[in-house]
Amino acid sequence: MTADIRLERNAFGRLVLTCADGETVEGVVPVRAFPIAAPDDGIALVAPDGREAAWIERLDTLPAPLRQLLEEELSRREFMPEIRRIHGVSSFATPSAWSVGTDRGDTEFVLWGEEFIRRLGKSGLLIEDSRGIHYLVRDLKALDRTSRRLLDRFL
């Protein structure tokens, strides 16, 4: 089933979806179905009442302007900094304060316990801090030696 949709940003900064049948939904929000495993596959446009208004199979098959709009909205909504480097940790006993460099800049957070580090596949990690913010380590092996050694103490 193929449907045509139109998506625009209105003056209030909300996305307005116009479905093929002419129905419009204001304030739709793009949500990735697999934010970690397959970020570009399966994106739902969710209406303000929590209902799925449209489903996009793949982001990269979309025409450029639509994709750009979606990517822009996603980047303003999703917050999962990707850890690129670990500058230091306050102690190897938890709770421990971490100072890290991420794709969104440098930051600090507190790790409650080792159980808040979740393994993702073979070499990925998802770290949840004391405030509930998630940090991603996409590839453990791609980190530099120091970061790896620090991280290793918690794994």
Partner: peptide
């Protein structure tokens, strides 16, 4: 089922 979009033709957005 909500409308699904698999391939959207160019210029329709």
């Amino acid at each position: 089922e909500p409308p699904r979009i698999e391939h959207v033709k160019r210029g329709q957005s």
